[in-house]
Design a protein around this nucleic acid. Structure first.
Lengths: 239, 239
DNA sequence: CTAACATTTTTCCAACTGGTCAAAATTTGG
DNA sequence: CCAAATTTTGACCAGTTGGAAAAATGTTAG
């Protein structure tokens, strides 16, 4: 068997002249960064919005600037005026993403009771899968590629946050308020089951069919997951 | 807001001459397809193996023939001798994938008891995530892109299979052997929680850290999931 | 050994890619 | 209104990409 290493095939980066803005900043390192104009804000948002569409479907390498520009309704050079490189757009999306992505977990409160806390965590994550499926897919795409652009953030910020919340969960377990089990895998299972409805949406719809594949599927999912995490699948006497 | 449709940016396909093999087949439509030579079988396997590496990381559009050829240890034209187009390689991978992918669910037996059946279904899926992570990612990549190449198979074969197994689950529920809940979402949750360990492997490792991120994570996951699906997170008196 | 066939390499190409640049068009502050 | 600054466009470029053609090199059955 030959070596199976996948080489990163990004375009070999040739030395390149600076972008106008960069050059200006370099000339006056202490100049106040001129506040963004209205047009700059609007267009940047337009581009990021379009890029989210494209990157979340095809991943970084599968997406082209042309395509993003077309979705954003502008020409490629015009887009490049606002974001001098493709990577820049992606970076902006990813850093905005990580913040919003971890927010629901941050809210889990040690002073609350485990079941209401876990229940509303699941609800929030499920709402995010419903309302921000592109963000979820962008994240998933990055994971599938080995998270090259955010691995340190995962190893530091994410790990710290999860460590902290795992301690809370362990505390609840010690108090007998929660079944004694692995808090890390518990968190993983919440991520997995909720994000599934964004990332594998096509499959979910295909399997549920026309009749059950409508918007109701998120409510069904919420009900099911609530039961799963509370009681599992063991039948209980009615009450 | 401009139209947000993402146009498929596959290379515009220009009319192209036939590949040798195609031409031959067209010339003698009833000729027996000559059995593959040893070299053909070996090389095709090599290529498919390499393509699995590349496609599973970068998706269809993010992968290049050059890259696949390099991983397979051959030149691009040589690779194209065996698979005249990029799509062909991907198609072969996908159709092989779907079979193996659904096999574990097919094994779920109506005559068995629900918990042993579900338990071993989870085990099998988890083993697949551990032993065939590239296949899992290839599948996930296709889903993220909206499953353009397998959507009909999902809507027919997969849906039928799940419908059938959902009936089995409902039967168990009616017999009081299984908590009454949504069988479709039950299956989704098994898919999600098990495939997570292949698709989000980087994240799982990053969060578990060096000490707990080793091979043991699959055994931990199995134990955790077993408890989750059996009893949920409600604490139980020891027994 | 040799003809017929299978495989590999070399060379090539048109379309696409990320990105540059100068000029033209537009907006904005005074 | 006007000059300065900002924004947009069109033409362009070098490297990459999927793929074709043909020549060169193996392999194998008789």
């Amino acid at each position: 068997m030959p070596p199976n290493k996948v080489k990163s095939a990004e375009p070999a980066l040739t030395p390149r002249r600076q972008h106008k803005a960069d050059a200006k900043a370099a000339a006056h390192p202490h100049a106040k960064p001129r506040p963004l104009t209205r047009i700059q804000r609007e267009k940047q948002d337009l581009i990021l919005e379009a890029a989210l569409d494209v990157f979340s479907m095809h991943g970084f390498r599968g997406s082209t600037i042309d395509q993003i520009a077309e979705v954003a309704g502008m020409s490629k050079p015009n887009l490049l005026y606002y974001f001098p490189r493709k990577e820049e757009i992606h970076r902006r999306l990813m850093s905005a993403l990580l913040d919003t992505w971890l927010a629901p977990l941050k809210e889990m409160d040690a002073d609350g009771d485990p079941f209401p806390e876990i229940r509303s965590y699941i609800r929030r994550k499920l709402e995010m899968a419903r309302d921000y499926p592109r963000e979820s897919r962008l994240f998933a795409n990055e994971m599938l590629q080995g998270a090259p652009r955010i691995i340190e953030m995962l190893e530091v910020d994410l790990k710290n946050l999860v460590d902290e919340k795992a301690k809370i969960l362990l505390g609840w377990m010690d108090q007998g308020k929660l079944a004694h089990t692995d808090p890390y895998h518990l968190i993983f299972s919440i991520w997995a089951t909720t994000q599934h409805y964004a990332d594998f949406d096509v499959q979910v719809r295909a399997v549920l069919g026309k009749d059950r594949g409508g918007e109701g599927r998120f409510e069904d999912a919420a009900r099911y997951l609530e039961q799963l995490f509370l009681f599992g699948l063991t039948p209980r006497p009615k009450g």
